[in-house]
Design a protein around this nucleic acid. Structure first.
Lengths: 236, 236
DNA sequence: AACAAAGTGTGATTTTTATCACTTCGGGAT
DNA sequence: ATCCCGAAGTGATAAAAATCACACTTTGTT
């Protein structure tokens, strides 16, 4: 969310982004550490300046459900805004060194409420986010695990995809089978088997941990995709 | 959402509700008809005055995923707010005769942006909603179909539950096995078998289509419930 | 009361998904 | 080059869930 999308769309959230960029307080983040963990009291949210952060829910039994992978320009911790006793619901793990700007939740709330153009942008942003989450989970639940994987791949094309000359789309993230499994709510082995079938069918190929989708339409067809707008059909 | 909760909580959204109640234009709704259907251009949202409306997504292959069942005091169609080219994403089917107040989307947006206490309440409302949706779908995906059903039952206790003298909780809705299946993303038969097992274990009982939960803790334990706040742990 | 319609309950079977237990591959580090 | 390690790949099996087919109940209607 609030990402500098690879598939260009004009920036509907210019004021909001600008405000966040003006934050004075920045923090370096190191791979393997946590920006925050679920349950922690939350007083700040973060704008990623560089590096990558993975947002996920960690279960009591060790299972992990991954929601998004955030890069430069994205905000994390936004779900704590406008809540009475704010605690992080999710865990933010740093997966690539970088730096974040820390924004005090209270300050930001103040600004969002008092600056009209910010108010408007924020409402638009939250609304888009709600629609996105709803469609995403619908996909994850309604067409079995295969549907969950296909939907995840389609959304990743929209979130992290780079269009190649030959028309294929490179998902510009290094993803292990396990990572993908965590996005879909399935197992590493299942993901592996499904990916290999798709490889054999020529729907995609994988090189050095990066997936290239050759036949996006095939994936869309299989989950009865209705071609929702790109700002809805992406990873959170 | 914005429901007059059966489990009392003070009304954090008093101004918002009041505004909506003041809408002049009301419409009678008849069981079996649709308040709106997905894909339709959306210019209004609705406050339910009486009757019941079911919000769901209908798939190309006939499958249905149910999101919520709304009664008096609840708003439907809110996902269209602050979107550029508004279309309903979901379908609202009337399941009990009643009446709704229709609110012009544009008017409401105007009010939400210009009246500060409304702005604040709306932001709180949307935020709560986002957290709720996220935790709900996490439950639906992470613990298999049994987890999906248990989570749905727990949330229904919070949304529609009436506490009985003996400590049990009556879910005050007439639900068919198929309805529950649509909430959980599973089949009627699976729901039936799971419910019967729970009956035998004394966890719940069913009388005239209404479920009473005797051992809520059992359900919570099975899905590693972390006792999130009631305003998060309910049906949308 | 009799009947139809809708919904529930259940066995048998198939399909999907997870789990377990390995083997193989590929890219650093020594 | 060789060793090592984490990840990928894969067969065998078990468990979970869906599907099919049909009997049984309940509910509402004439």
């Amino acid at each position: 969310m609030l990402a500098a999308k690879t598939f260009n769309q004009q920036d509907r959230f210019a004021h909001l982004r600008e405000l966040l960029r003006s934050a004075k307080h920045t923090v370096k983040i190191r791979k393997g550490t946590f920006l925050f963990q679920e349950g922690m009291a939350a007083a700040e949210l973060y704008l990623i300046l560089s590096g990558k952060v993975q947002i996920s829910k960690i279960c009591a039994d060790g299972k992990e459900m991954c929601f998004r992978i955030c890069g430069p320009g994205e905000i994390v911790g936004e779900l704590t805004l406008f809540t009475a006793e704010p605690r992080y619901l999710l865990t933010a793990k740093v997966i690539e060194d970088g730096e974040v700007a820390a924004i005090k939740k209270d300050d930001l709330e103040q600004q969002l409420l008092t600056n009209p153009s910010l108010t408007y942008e924020y409402m638009q942003w939250v609304s888009t986010h709600a629609r996105r989450t709803q469609t995403k989970f619908r996909d994850l639940i309604m067409h079995g695990k295969k549907g969950a994987l296909y939907s995840t791949l389609i959304r990743m094309c929209n979130s992290y995809g780079v269009k190649l000359d030959n028309g294929s789309i490179l998902i510009d993230l290094t993803l292990k089978n396990q990572d993908l499994a965590n996005f879909c709510g399935t197992t590493r082995e299942s993901v592996n088997r499904m990916l290999n079938t798709l490889k054999q069918q020529g729907v995609l190929s994988i090189k050095r941990g990066k997936i290239t989708i050759h036949d996006l339409d095939y994936l869309k067809q299989e989950i009865q995709c209705e071609n929702c707008p790109v700002d809805i059909c992406c990873i959170e």
